[in-house]
Design a protein around this nucleic acid. Structure first.
Lengths: 354, 354
DNA sequence: CTCGGCCGAGAGAGCGCTCCCATGATCCGA
DNA sequence: TCGGATCATGGGAGCGCTCTCTCGGCCGAG
């Protein structure tokens, strides 16, 4: 229950609305109106107040405002430690950037919540429950992640990045999310390989406890209805796992003539193994990745054909979706129909590898 | 002057201190005392209040508390867009993690401020000036970055990561910073090369508008007092620039027998060029980097000898330093002597390349 | 037994703001 | 010229909390 032990702030008493009002020769109420847009105040007074604000260097006290309006103009972005590749992963960089940019448009602040291991959830819950933020954005998590339930219990409006594993339908409230069309993208990737005349198309799958990986597997099966199970190998989204999977593949199915990797990192690992074993890409084996990670896709040889998603756009969408949820909550008091999730399209980017 | 346009928060009126007090059968003042540690309240009452808090699920209203205490338990971390490699750069990941962890210890929140280009400074200034945060952490910037002056004008206590370019001494208040011992680290690196019997030791320097690069150059000169200017080449901390610099070096000074690169990325570029030109590392040319970036150092062949800095520790130190600054401000009203900056030690990590 | 001192608890002010409501001023049509 | 509607303005309550100040009860000392 103890709280912030931070020492007192220094800023030598900033001017208050009262001071502005006095200087402008109006009441505090009028000054407040002007500061908040100036609707319903006659121009001359608006000017006077504006000038007073300028001269005094007045900046509204956020705490006081929050106290009465019950909104605080801040959104939490929750990053779970298990996914701490977040920062090294350009995926997150772009997503957070999109979020940041969009939040600026809404004049809202980004509060970064970094979950330090499972024991840290109570801290997050406390913070979320403390009403410090108007809403939360979290990222798609693993199957057994408690974060969704922590967020739900804190009763804070939230939007997920990436489709979360959720009970789905047994009375649990659905949390809206923004995700790329992983399944459709995977279909496009595999169709590309089919159109090249490949018949033994393998898939190096991502970890089964992430929906993105599952969806990509599903897309693969959509096109290859009766795919040989032996052609599907398990990876974990790292380059090494891609290399391992490729090695297995070549061992069990040396006749493989195409590979759809669950992401670019795994594709790069697979590519390395293919080179080592003397297979030419794309002549002997065609290769498609997923994500269009700049740092990978163009530095490998040959450049990787892959599926692109608008990551920054997804970040922006998360914010917009959250704002809509908050609007609904505010307006009707309760849910205005379940807020729809958004699936953003993907595009196949053809380079040399397939 | 318009502010957050966020819709109203949903949380159905949470219990107030008043409610807790009523339930515990004490006054609001006593309840407050208990919530804030319980000093000077007799045990039976403490228990009663604690129980009431528990039962009601009371969480203090942050805004109300901030309003009266003038402290808000939040620290801004400012990231400038020009440096947007921040997220892809593991350096920042670790630094931010250190900051995040240390802030948790102080029960403070991390507010992420992302500067979106130069025009965005006014927004940052407004936010900082708005008293939303108790202090700020910013990262070492380029020579002409306005951020330091923006922060100064906002009169928010701040600590920099990396030594900033500051006028230094002409009346400007010194901003404390945390930096690695770049100069000492560079000396160690060069001494290593000297100890290997190398006599024509080159330096691929980082951009001159960053103090870290300048300090490393200085360290190089500390050891090689009369270094041939031709042995010093300019890079910009990217792998490509390292490759370019190495190519130049080989052209002008084919007799070069050692290279100290300003960072690991440039070292990796140099390494690539050395291989291409048939120079063996370390036999023909010994190579040392700087940073000990995991993703580079062990994946290149041969593994890179480099200089390691405790990046997460630097993040933590930034927080601790800031807290000390805040303490001083709070206690004495004004500066209790200039707060000292901290230079953290570096260590030479010897691998195969030198 | 009385009185000063001390300590624990409550009363109440007030942090800076927004917003409801009352109050004048203004303006229209009759 | 006057009444009622309209609109800009000010007064004032109160958001939830902390903190000072006061008060009352208990103690030990005289």
């Amino acid at each position: 229950m103890r709280s912030a032990v931070l020492p007192e702030q220094t800023a030598g008493s900033r001017p208050t609305l009262e001071a502005v009002a006095a200087r402008a020769g109006v009441s505090r109420a009028t000054a407040s109106r002007v500061v908040n847009g100036g609707a319903g105040v006659r121009p001359p007074l608006v000017d006077k107040v504006r000038r007073a604000v300028e001269e005094l260097g007045y900046v509204p006290n956020h705490a006081a405002r929050t106290l009465v309006t019950r909104r605080n103009g801040a959104i939490a972005v929750i990053i779970a430690e298990p996914e701490f590749r977040v920062f090294s992963d350009p995926f997150f960089e772009q997503q957070v950037r999109g979020i940041s940019r969009e939040l600026i448009a809404y004049d809202a602040q980004l509060v970064l919540l970094w979950v330090e291991g499972p024991g840290d959830h109570s801290r997050i819950a406390r913070y979320l429950g403390g009403g410090h933020v108007d809403g939360a954005l979290a990222f798609s998590l693993h199957h057994d992640d408690e974060l969704p339930s922590v967020i739900r219990r804190a009763r804070v409006p939230a939007v997920f990045g990436g489709r979360p594993f959720l009970p789905g339908g047994d009375g649990e409230p659905r949390v809206p999310y923004v995700d790329a069309d992983n399944r459709g993208g995977a279909r496009e990737a595999v169709r590309r390989l089919v159109s090249l005349g490949r018949t033994r198309i393998a898939h190096i799958a991502g970890p089964r406890d992430q929906t993105s990986a599952l969806d990509r597997i599903a897309g693969y099966h959509d096109v290859l209805l009766d795919a040989d199970p032996e052609l599907i190998r398990q990876g974990d989204f790292t380059a090494e796992s891609g290399a391992r999977a490729m090695a297995e593949l070549l061992e069990h199915r040396p006749d493989v003539d195409a590979v759809f990797a669950g992401n670019d990192l795994m594709a790069s690992g697979a590519l390395r193994v293919l080179c080592e074993r003397g297979r030419r890409v794309p002549q002997d084996v065609a290769l498609v990745g997923f994500d269009d990670m700049r740092t990978v896709v163009e530095t490998v040889d040959p450049p990787l054909t892959t599926v692109r998603q608008d990551i920054e756009g997804m970040g922006r969408l998360m914010v917009r979706l959250l704002m809509r949820v908050l609007d609904d909550h505010g307006a009707n008091g309760s849910r205005t129909g379940s807020p729809a999730s958004v699936i953003t399209p993907t595009t196949l980017v053809v380079r040399a590898s397939a």
